[in-house]
């Protein structure tokens, strides 16, 4: 339980007078002081004001797009692109504004490529746009050392894969796309975790690793479900079991990440439930349904109990 919730719990129990609660939170530095407020207002108004203004400018150009000539369109996008690069050069990569400018340049690269495709009707497929985009911005992403930029880049790789599969459906079997996405995201997860372990990237933020683990987990769970429903090849089930074992070893034994373990538990519950639904709901339906209900509730309770044990252990340490 975090400090704020603990203090609120004590106040609810009457250990802290309710008129002293704000003072208690301020004492433990859980409420902002005047300096904190000014800092927060500065960032919030700057970020939101800029976002609204830039959105307004983008909408303005969108409203007049048909009336704008071909060269003017390119000039507008390239001017915005150069403005981002200029800001990045002036502010440097380490400042927040510099990072925002780099992100702007990465996104505008895609806008420029889309404009080329729209204007010159090159006949290129969507996957070629995403492929070229990810290739061109890779050096900036590598030098940027920004988690958001890396995730955007991985998002482009995923989109490239999906659109390629859509354009070449004859080359792909049913679950080939899922396998590709699983491999891409799992490799990214492994690499990211390794770099974090070697402290080549910031280790205090868990969320990028959790996003990658979610993507990897969703893909392998869908593959396992497909194998269960279609009674298809056993390789998906084997891969799912190996994935579960690896997740357990890395995120329970080597380190503890409760979010990823929760995802693993959910994957197990869903897959086993679907398996038993396929094989139980045939004969006597009432008895089968009762069995299934007990199974689902039992699995979720067991999963909840196990996760709670880990949570208690984390808080004791």
């Amino acid at each position: 339980m975090n400090a704020r919730n603990k203090i609120l719990e004590w106040a609810e129990e009457g250990r802290i007078a309710s008129d002293q609660l704000a003072a208690a939170l301020k004492t433990c530095k859980l409420l902002p002081d005047q300096r904190g407020w000014l800092q927060f207002l500065d960032r919030l108004l700057l970020g939101l004001g800029t976002l609204l203004l830039v959105s307004g400018i983008i909408f303005f150009f969108a409203a007049n797009w048909d009336g704008i000539g071909r060269y003017t369109r390119f000039a507008l996008v390239e001017a915005a692109f150069l403005a981002c690069l200029l800001l990045l050069w002036r502010l440097g990569n380490t400042s927040l504004a510099g990072q925002a400018a780099l992100m702007g340049a990465v996104l505008l690269t895609g806008a420029l490529l889309a404009l080329v495709g729209q204007t010159y009707q090159t006949g290129a497929d969507n996957w070629e746009l995403f492929f070229a985009w990810s290739l061109l911005v890779f050096p900036w992403v590598a030098l940027g050392k920004n988690s958001i930029l890396w995730l955007i880049w991985l998002g482009l790789i995923n989109l490239c894969t999906i659109t390629y599969a859509q354009a070449h459906q004859s080359l792909f079997w049913e679950d080939d796309l899922l396998w590709l996405l699983f491999i891409i995201n799992t490799l990214a997860l492994v690499l990211w975790q390794k770099l974090a372990d070697l402290e080549h990237i910031p280790t205090d933020a868990h969320w990028p690793i959790r996003i990658l683990a979610t993507a990897s987990g969703v893909c392998i769970t869908l593959l396992a479900l497909q194998a269960v429903v279609d009674s298809a090849s056993i390789s998906s089930i084997m891969a799912w079991l190996i994935w579960l074992g690896t997740i357990y070893y890395v995120y329970r034994r080597q380190r503890v990440d409760l979010y990823i373990l929760t995802g693993g538990v959910l994957s197990i519950i869903v897959t086993i439930s679907v398996f038993f639904t396929q094989h139980l709901l045939t004969g006597d339906s009432v008895f089968s349904l009762v069995l299934l209900t007990v199974l689902v509730l039992g699995l979720s309770a067991a999963g909840g109990w196990w996760l709670r044990q880990i949570l208690e252990e984390m808080h004791r340490q």
Binding site: L53, A62, N64
Partner: peptide, 30 residues
């Protein structure tokens, strides 16, 4: 963005003015 009840031009003006107001407010407070 998907609000279709007013024109894109009106949307853009509303957003830009709101953004400028917030930036002006920030300058004033600071």
């Amino acid at each position: 963005y998907y609000l279709l009840d007013i024109s894109l031009l009106h949307k853009s003006l509303l957003l830009a003015v709101s953004g400028l107001l917030l930036l002006a407010l920030r300058l004033l407070i600071m």
